[in-house]
Every structure is written in structure tokens, then in C-alpha cells.
Computed example of a mutant assay.
Amino acid sequence: MSTMIKMVRALTAAAAIAVAAPAFAAGDGPHIERQQWSFAGPFGTFERGQLQRGFKVYQEVCAACHGLRQVAFRNLAEEGGPSFSEEQAKVIAAEYTVVDGPNDEGDMYDRPAILADKFPSPFPNEQAARASNGGAYPPDFSLLAKARAAHRGFPWFVFDAFTQYQEQGPDYIYALLTGYEEDPEGVEVPVGQYYNHSFLAGQFIGMAPPLSDELVEYTDDTPMTTEQYARDVSAFMMWAAEPHLEARKKMGFRVMIFLIVFAGLLYFTKKHLWRNVEH
């Protein structure tokens, strides 16, 4: 009898958590709307033009503070990425300077970057980065689309697993970049910070609004708006965090086809082997 009571209590507690978790996730954090991404879903792919535009936004706006130290210049020309040519990637790399060495005298020296190099950090160390940004530390962009996401509570994340929805990171980055507002009436924003209703760590953020209309020039007739810039750079950051996304999805589809065929073969083999045996 006591075992039955314990089971009932456990089921009651689990049901309470299932009901409370979505309310907690939705009530205590900012509401992040889902966006439509070309790379979403099991058959999603990156849009090459969008990745190139996103890189342009990163290079002209974000790179002044945020590094990309896990991405090599050669990745820009690899399959599944922005599809720059090798020559274009070499030109981009030559615009950067990296520290190399030591030389024969034991000294470090600067040289133009090559395809094998990774994007250098805009600051030599964390202390220099904080000193240049009022104490705030600009995070590296390499894995940010995976590290920053407004995850939904139980049971909603179960549905996301079945629908293969993995774009919470780009959704959050887009919401953050477009979430700046004028200081609301009655809200005192600390000095050196800005009001952003989508910021997960609170509504005050140390980064000034980085984007504005007509800030970056596009040459493909794409609208030059804050929203478009935010969408493009979010897609680029998703590629930086998962450069082999397309290859992974293709392999996953092939594995599923193999498993279905293999399961069918096992079933018919079993039927054949046991056809004369009474059950």
C-alpha cells in the first residue's frame, strides 16, 4: 500500500512539473519568436547569398569587438559554407594580420594571414577587451549560435526534438539585435547600458545597438534594414557554429533510409525462416 502511495505522489509531482515548467520558461524569460530559416528542418540548407551578406555584416560591424577564433579563412571557401572562391578567401585573409613565430632570433612577428590561419581576435586578451568596452566582455562569435538560446521547458522541448527544431540560437540572436528600445517610462537604465527586451540575462545590456538602416551596403538589391542585417548575421553565426550542418543532415537522411530498408529485410528474413513453424 505504501508503495502505491509513493507512486501516486511521484506521478502527481511529475504532472505538476510538466504543467509548471512551460509557465516558468515563458513567464520568467523574454518571449523569443520563431523565425523562418532556410536551414531549418531535416532538409534545410544555408542560403549562400545570406551567408555572404552575414559575413559582410560581421566584418564591417561586429569584428571590431567580437572574435571568430574557431573559424579558419579556408572555411569560407569550403563546401557547405558561404561559397567564396579560394581566391576570394585569400583576399579576405590578406586583410588580416596574425602573430607568428618565433623567428630565428626568437622574436614573434606580424604577417598577413593565409587560408590556414583562423580569424584573429580583435583584442590581445580579455582584460584589454573589457577595458575597451566599459568592463563588458564581448563574446567570441564562433559558437555563440549554439551557446545562446532561449530553450523552452518541458514538454515543449520534446516536441522540438520530434520536429528537429534546432534554431533557438539564431532566433535569440535575431531577437537580441532587433530588441533595443527607448528606455521605458519608470525604468532606470544603469549608466553605460541599454534597454533590450530580448536580453536573456536581464533587460539591460552593455552593448550599444550595433545595427541601423543603411549601415552596410548590399550589392544584390537585398533591403538594407536593421532587421535584414540581423537576420543575415544570425544565419552566418549559425554556420560558424555548425559549418557541417548540411553534411550532417544528408548523412542523417541516408542513415534513416538504411535503417528502414534494414528493418524491412530483417522482417522478411524472420518471416521466411519461421514460415513453417507453428506459433
Rank of each mutant, 00 (worst) to 15 (best):
P223H: 06
D232N: 13
K56R: 14
E78S: 13
N103Y: 00
A136V: 15
M7C: 11
R248P: 00
P42I: 03
A89M: 01
M237G: 06
W274C: 12
V191E: 15
I17M: 09
M251A: 09
Y194W: 12
N125E: 06
R69Q: 12
M256K: 09
P210E: 06
A116D: 14
S38C: 01
T3M: 07
D183A: 14
D171K: 00
D110C: 05
F157D: 10
A131W: 03
R69L: 07
H197D: 10
R248F: 00
R130S: 10
L215Q: 14
F123G: 04
Q35G: 14
G67S: 10
T178Q: 01
Q70G: 11
A23S: 09
L200P: 14
E167M: 10
Y137K: 15
S83F: 08
R111N: 03
A129L: 08
L143E: 10
P30D: 05
I205N: 08
L76P: 02
M1T: 12
V8R: 13
F268H: 11
L266M: 13
F253W: 10
G41Y: 00
A23R: 11
A175F: 03
A23D: 05
A18K: 04
N276I: 07
M7A: 13
R9W: 11
L115N: 04
R248L: 00
M251R: 01
G81H: 05
D232I: 09
G186F: 11
D232S: 14
A235S: 15
A77Y: 05
E126Y: 05
G202L: 04
A113D: 08
G101L: 03
A230H: 01
V8F: 14
S132A: 15
A129D: 02
P170S: 01
L200N: 05
M4C: 06
E47R: 11
A93V: 01
F55K: 06
A14Y: 03
M7S: 13
E86Q: 11
I114A: 15
Q193S: 13
V19I: 13
L176M: 11
Y174C: 06
L265Y: 07
A72I: 01
G135N: 04
V57W: 00
P42D: 09
Y267P: 00
Y58S: 01
A16K: 02
I17D: 04
V61K: 06
R248H: 02
F157K: 09
A77V: 01
H279K: 12
K90L: 09
F24Q: 05
M237A: 15
A150P: 03
R130H: 04
I32H: 00
G134M: 08
E95V: 12
D117I: 06
N103F: 02
A263G: 04
E126T: 15
S212V: 06
A10L: 15
D213R: 07
F141R: 09
G264S: 01
F236P: 02
K56I: 07
N196M: 05
L68G: 11
I17S: 05
T97W: 04
L273V: 15
Q166T: 11
T222I: 08
Y165D: 07
T3R: 10
